[in-house]
Structures are given as C-alpha cells and as structure tokens.
C-alpha cells in the first residue's frame, strides 16, 4: 500500500547535473550513441535506498577499526529499517550518539566495539537507550 505512491523526487543532496542530451549536437553526422543514451551511474542512487530517511554522520574515534570504520569517516545511516542482529548501528545511549555493532541477546542486547582496546556495552533496562539508525556505508578517504 505504502509503496503505491512512492514516486520519490530526486534526493536532496544530489549534485545539479545536466540532462544527458542537453549538449551541442553535431550538425553533420548524427551520433550513433543517441539511441542508447541513459542516465550516468549515480552514487546517490547506489548508496541511498530511502533518501528521506538517510542521514550522513561523521565517525570520531577508533573503536570501530575492526569493522572498517576509521576516525573521520562519513557514515551513511538509514533510519527506515529495524536493525538486524550484527548490523552496525548508531545508537543513542545516555544522551550520546555512538556507533557500534548491534548484537541481540536472549534478554536485551550487546553493543560491540570493533577493537580490543574498547569495551563492549551491555545494555541493561536502566539505561536510556535506542537505535537511531543502521549504518549502510562507511565512506573512507584514501
């Protein structure tokens, strides 16, 4: 039902591009490629499933190195899905945002760090805790 009208507009963070055919047309021989024109591959489309529910955040610290997240990386966070076991998530715990691996336990959950130097967090009922979103990509500059 909800999908029925999901005629989504282009994502807000898309770069202003030009339509593929809005370029000088050769006056002589017509381009044999014209019939095959299609949109250029688009990073936004590739990285973002739900543009409205997707937010970019910056990771700080090195506790997630084991999962390939470096200090300063840009994370693509999708808030539209419930986290599955072992997803990397942004969690809100005691008023702070933190990125960790989400592990379901028979009772409650464990937020695992990706480095032996950092402790995992066992979430108990006392703590104010919620999952803010699921990290889909880590963009790391080489």
């Amino acid at each position: 039902m909800e999908r029925l009208f999901a005629g989504l507009p282009p994502p807000a963070i898309s770069l202003p591009g030009c339509p593929l055919l809005a370029k000088p047309v050769p006056a002589g021989f017509p381009s044999p490629a014209d019939d095959y024109a299609e949109g250029r591959v688009d990073l936004n489309q590739h990285l973002i499933a739900e543009p409205e529910a997707t937010f970019l955040v910056r990771a700080t610290g090195d506790s997630m190195l084991g999962f390939g997240i470096h200090d300063g990386d840009t994370l693509v966070v999708d808030r539209s899905t419930e986290p599955a076991d072992r997803n990397i998530v942004v969690a809100m715990i005691d008023g702070e945002f933190t990125v960790k691996q989400f592990c379901r336990l028979p009772a409650g959950c464990l937020l695992r760090a990706g480095s032996p130097a950092h402790r995992d967090i066992l979430v108990d009922a006392e703590q104010q805790f919620s999952i803010w979103g699921v990290v889909r990509w880590s963009l790391h500059r080489l």
Binding site: L56, V57, T74, V90, E96, F97, T98, V99
Partner: peptide, 13 residues
Amino acid sequence: YTTRWSEIPRVTG
C-alpha cells in the same frame, strides 16, 4: 546537521 558538510552530526566510535 543536514545541509552543511562541516556540521553533520558526530558519533563516537
């Protein structure tokens, strides 16, 4: 948070 690269939220890893 959502319109400036330099101001996107920070999360501690």
